[in-house]
Amino acid sequence: MIKIVNLHKKFGTLGVLKGVNIEVNKGEVMVIIGPSGSGKSTLLRCINLLEKPTSGQIFFDGEDITAKKVNKNLVRQRLGMVFQSFNLFPHMTALGNVTIAPLQVLKMKKDEAKKRGVELLVKVGLKDKIDVYPNQLSGGQKQRVAIARALAMNPEAMLFDEVTSALDPELVKEVLDVMKDLAKSGMTMLVVTHEMGFAREVGSHLIFMDEGQILEEGRAADIFDNPQHPRAKAFLDAVL
């Protein structure tokens, strides 16, 4: 479903991605781990076209989305993204956040968007926060609204960029639980995370990145139990 071919990204002279190749199939949960600054987030941001790759190609359902003539807005409608810093719209209620894109981008009818928005907020466990503004929500609640907001566009795949890194430890689980449910429902997911427990339990596929390259790739359990590359080994020893 998502195929990345020889992706390079440079910021000025600094190479952040150095020839990344990935293939994610439908329904797979691809977890990307690695030390800070290894290019994990940049990779996700390239897939969502928030960063323009320096070279290489990204195919989404067979279409090269790095091609010039591609309508970025249409690609992004099909790819949900959740950020580390939530980025909820502070001037809208939880429901407003979830319905704004369906209303303005998909031109969905008001009742329909509202009905679907409420459904999604219930699904992420925020039934009693529907009309609450973001500044009255905890970090975990904010992030669950952000997930519902991305889901409201009915994306074909979801990108999670360190979505629990800004959360207090006791709020991490509620967000991961929502992601687990999502994975179980068959959503294709790319997850950049430092939550190794989650990576192992939910990840169908795992990638270890360092310095802009994929150093190890395979089934999550295999890599955790028996990492091959010395740097992957050192990293896992340090974090587990």
Partner: peptide, 13 residues
């Protein structure tokens, strides 16, 4: 915050 624009664009706006 520039995350606001990114979040909006990531929704396809």
């Amino acid at each position: 915050d520039k995350g606001q624009m990114e979040a909006a664009r990531s929704l396809g706006m």
